[in-house]
Design a protein around this nucleic acid. Structure first.
Lengths: 179, 179
DNA sequence: TTATAATTTCAGAAATTTCTGAAAATGCGA
DNA sequence: TCGCATTTTCAGAAATTTCTGAAATTATAA
């Protein structure tokens, strides 16, 4: 890896975290490289910088595109593909959350839906009761994610900053509405 | 695997999802088995039900305990360890989120803190600017997680149900406070 | 204590994931 | 269309993760 030292440590760290975030080491490194680079990069530059094979880069780029985290930007006078982050840091963050929801939550929700559908209405069944609890929790969570994703960044930021303070606002809402 | 068919499909599914949730297949299967079982289970029963080795079960149980997702419950007249879920489905969900935050977000936040600390105050540096953006986003996210975790379940449920409706409540708050 | 039951450990085997690099496919200007 | 530049694919190799099972450790009842 032949990079400025501050960039290199970022790349190494994102590589180590990669697998925890749902992709693998090289894909994590590639993401860091593209995000922290001021200029668009092509596949050869990425392979060169990270010291990995061209084929591996091709697969990694496809993966990052399937996550909608990067996109190409044509460079006049060069037919190579040049890649840049697909939005601001904030947008990339939301994108990661949405994509992980799709991969980590949605399949389980459908599975539970299916199970609960074609099971006898034996509502005393312990396992079935647990299934419903998980199902309801996931449905709530997904609904919330969808809503969040529709909010404009400023409101969302306010909401996050407010944190549990929302509890107070909710109480206040009750009081106001009760009048 | 020798289980009632409805339980078996749950176990298989949780196994498949396991690696996406931060552990491996067997650990996922073990979690499902324990959560969906009405009675506490011991290690031998788990090994037997899933058709895996005793040693593997021992490692998996340690993993699940390190996530605080299960705990032992002594059974009078039996010195084996019997395992049960460490709380309600809701609590397990929160626990998974908290644990993943620790493993997936905290390390990156510290790394960025470090980088931003001992870097020259060259605030025009593009990479440094991006680092700060990510740093601030993660800090916001973590603060919010902490807050959420402190809320009582009912308020939290209300909050989630409200979703982007919070936007309206926030507007209202502004109006009320402005008076 | 001692004997027995239960759990943990961990070296090597098995399974899975990731990576390479050459061949195939694709895109594009002339 | 042809010829060259670029990207993708994928079989096998390499790296990593997971699993087994026997030995070591720990816990407890007598």
């Amino acid at each position: 890896m032949n990079l400025p030292p501050n960039i290199e440590s970022l790349v190494v760290h994102f590589g180590e975290m990669g697998s925890r975030w749902g992709f693998n080491r090289t894909v994590g490194q590639m993401l860091a490289l593209i995000v922290f680079s001021e200029i668009p990069l092509n596949a050869d530059q990425i392979a060169e910088s990270l010291g990995i094979s061209r084929g591996n880069v091709s697969m990694g780029l496809k993966e990052l595109q399937s996550w909608r985290l990067i996109r190409t930007q044509p460079q006049p006078g060069d037919r190579k593909d040049y890649f840049i982050p697909n939005g601001t840091v904030w947008e990339l963050g939301l994108q990661v959350m949405q994509e992980r929801r799709k991969r980590e939550v949605d399949p389980t929700l459908s599975m539970l839906r299916g199970q609960l559908m074609n099971s006898d209405d034996d509502s005393n069944n312990y396992a079935q009761q647990k299934m419903r609890e998980i199902h309801d929790l996931l449905e709530l969570l997904i609904g919330w994610f969808d809503d969040i994703h529709k909010m404009n960044p400023d409101n969302l930021k306010t909401l996050l900053k407010l944190g549990s303070g929302v509890g107070k606002v909710l109480d206040m809402k009750d009081k106001v509405l009760r009048k």
